[in-house]
Design a binder for these strands. Sequence first.
DNA 1: ACAGCCATGTAAGTCGTTACATGATTGC
DNA 2: GCAATCATGTAACGACTTACATGGCTGT
Lengths: 206, 206
Amino acid sequence: MSLRHALLGLLDVAPMSGYTLLKQFDRSVAYVWQAPHSQIYPELRRMEADGLIVGHAEPRGSHATRRTYSITIAGRDELRRWVEEPTAAQPERDIAHLKATYFEFGSFENARNQFRAHMLSHEQLQRKWEAHVESLLNRSTVLLKLRLSTAPPGMHEPIVAYKVHVYQGLVQRAKDEVAWAKAGLELVDHLEATCAATPFTAQAAI
Amino acid sequence: MSLRHALLGLLDVAPMSGYTLLKQFDRSVAYVWQAPHSQIYPELRRMEADGLIVGHAEPRGSHATRRTYSITIAGRDELRRWVEEPTAAQPERDIAHLKATYFEFGSFENARNQFRAHMLSHEQLQRKWEAHVESLLNRSTVLLKLRLSTAPPGMHEPIVAYKVHVYQGLVQRAKDEVAWAKAGLELVDHLEATCAATPFTAQAAI
DNA sequence: ACAGCCATGTAAGTCGTTACATGATTGC
DNA sequence: GCAATCATGTAACGACTTACATGGCTGT
């Protein structure tokens, strides 16, 4: 249940409405844990039911309401408990690598397209994460400013440093993926040059 | 629906019973796409219903049966279609990095433990993947031998090379994770040395 | 008036996890 | 006889995706 803790982390910075939370989420934690609004709104309701947050509704227009949530003591305890809990290893589940395992079923051109797309999307991720590292180092994001404004000065360095470390790690990871895809492109060139270019069509099937 | 295609890839090598499939799965594709038997058995039934594989039941003992599945032409077509289909980017969802983002909520000792555990588990993954690269290069796995024995010789190099490339990529990734965790440990040492060691306890909560 | 963003939800369906359940065969 | 491994499932629940649905506010 990581979405819950991602949200608790945000609400620990400041009380927020669902929508504001959503927007802040998209420009921070979503970089490591994505979730659509259709998952977030119901989760907030469940968290309120579990006493981790409290929401109070203000009228918005004639029919609609806006709910603003604040974290509770129980919520802070839960966040802390989760941070201190041992983290289970994530099950490996990687479509790009799975598919690459089976590239012999497609053409060389397909393998090239797949590697190229992989390269492009990870170059984009790299840029996004690099920009985030920058804004963390500048302490220029809304959320970080708010967080630092209420945290004891002695905690400022850790608060920033852990996040920077995370996003630098992701930048490195993206670079690797780009390098992997590039090496893949070279591999395809090599294979195409050395192999009889007959596409793989298999034997007897029912 | 990647599980389906992972299974099709195995059944393309040779017809197999559910259990054999399970075992071969665990020592090959599961390295990039994990799934428990409780997911695999029903999926095989669905694939049969969709005409991608055919199963025939043989009696086993007095009550039980063993079902052996073979891939169909439609199954091969579907596998090929999937390989040639553009691959959507995976949503980012990484508990270890999410949690590290919030390490300021725990103690320095906790951060150290988390980084250490991360390091150990990725060192293990690295060794597992390195061993797999070795056995692919030696062409010594059961599945690969079978595959090569029925594939045209001109395809042998691509079949092996794509898989080797995938697992080498994963080895590199694991090395990065280890390096990230090590840098994390150094960061914690640095933070502990430079910061007043007051654990972060936050302000007003309801 | 219309576009664009603010704002909050529901519903159906798929995918994945964890636990439960059962029986067969092989070798010691 | 017992343990290990072979072998195949079901059930309940939780997480996630995709699509549908509705209405408010602000500026042009």
